[in-house]
Write a protein that binds this DNA or RNA. Structure first.
Lengths: 213, 213
DNA sequence: CTCAAATCCTGACGGGGCGTCACTGACGCC
DNA sequence: GGCGTCAGTGACGCCCCGTCAGGATTTGAG
């Protein structure tokens, strides 16, 4: 990390990169997030300590609190990060979809593949018997849920499907995705296609049998 | 709590109640659980502190640790308690059921009604925006899950239904029940029948559409 | 009834994580 | 080059954690 001078004098910046203040700020924020990801991965949410994260960054404790108010807030930031990366994938599936069935299939497949990819970097070394940390309803996560709901609404309306309880339907779909996804992660080989087929089959089959409000 | 003597001398115990040691032990255990229920209800799992629980019981801090090793363990004990009370209800539904459909309907209804009843005593005053504490996979909770799985297996076999991925199916049903249940708790009036109809409809409809492994 | 052993309640204590704040040095701007 | 601002620093006080030696109470035997 040494700041060796590669030039006799500090070379002038001809690009319009942000100044050093701004750069260390984003670097610190990133360092904290990286450290947090690793610490949560190794110790779990409950076992992790703000001090553990701080130690791993090499920063002073006070610096941490310039960026996040608490362990909870860093964790939420990580969840937000995931949601922010998943959102565009979901959007693409919505654009591609021609009807509810194709949207659901695409979205589920996208989610399971996203989950499998995240799993590699995220849940490195979970203590045995520990449950997954609960993903909180952060703004970005809430936004994804809302987007699912809205996509359902539009696509069902577009094909003149009979009305359903959208809140329940969204909740149920997300619940199935989460839980089947969790089970999928425990199986070897990891079968995203199988999980997709199951979840999509269940919901598509169930949809016509739903009570009409 | 005064031990006023209602008799000139300590009356002989003619029943075969357990001795005083045993009685205070169960009383303490109960006091801790009651206090924990209240504290978790008011502060949430993360916000709660072992000291908060101890304070509310009036016991010494060391006494708490004679009964439970940590905050996590008391919480799990509460979850176990709920599972232990729900288990017999589930069993009754299994006995009554004639086929998968009737079992699912009965079990779902039982769960939603149980949830609504628990809600009164349990989640008194949740801070806004706080998610529910994650119910951990305690022994008793795991047992309930296993029992659901086994009931599914038996009842599907009995009616010669084509094979399905039982793990996924169980996970999906529990997920739907949990999430739809949560949504139900937020609605006024609390409509257990509507929730049951929705969850049952979704799963019963989806069952024939599941992929066959 | 008496007494010793078993039981478990008690609360003070060392250890450590938490969040703060006065200080300082580096950066950006003129 | 000089100055105001802003983020980094780490020691500090606070509180919670889990333990343990000492003491109070119950039990069962004589």
């Amino acid at each position: 990390m040494s700041n060796i001078a590669y030039f006799p004098a500090m070379p002038p910046r001809e690009d319009n990169r942000p100044g050093k203040r701004e750069r260390t700020k984003t670097a610190n924020r990133q360092a904290i997030l990286d450290a947090a990801r690793q610490v949560f991965g190794e110790l779990g949410y409950d076992g992790a300590t703000v001090r553990d994260i701080i130690r791993l960054t090499g920063l002073a404790s006070g610096t941490f609190y310039n960026y996040y108010k608490s362990k909870e807030e860093v964790f939420d930031a990580l969840a937000d990060d995931g949601a922010r990366r998943f959102r565009p994938l979901l959007r693409v599936e919505f654009e591609k979809a021609t009807d509810f069935a194709s949207f659901l299939r695409g979205a589920m497949r996208a989610y399971f593949e996203f989950l499998a990819a995240e799993h590699e970097t995220w849940r490195v070394n979970r203590p045995a018997g520990e449950t997954h940390p609960q993903v909180r309803a952060t703004p970005e996560v809430t936004a994804v849920f809302g987007e699912v709901r809205e996509a359902f609404e539009r696509v069902l309306e577009r094909e003149h499907a009979p009305p359903v309880d959208l809140d329940y339907l969204t909740a149920a779909c997300i619940a199935v995705a989460r839980e089947v996804g969790d089970k999928m992660l425990e199986r070897r080989p990891m079968d995203t296609q199988g999980a997709t087929a199951f979840a999509v089959g269940l919901i598509l089959g169930g949809l016509p049998a739903l009570p009409r409000p």
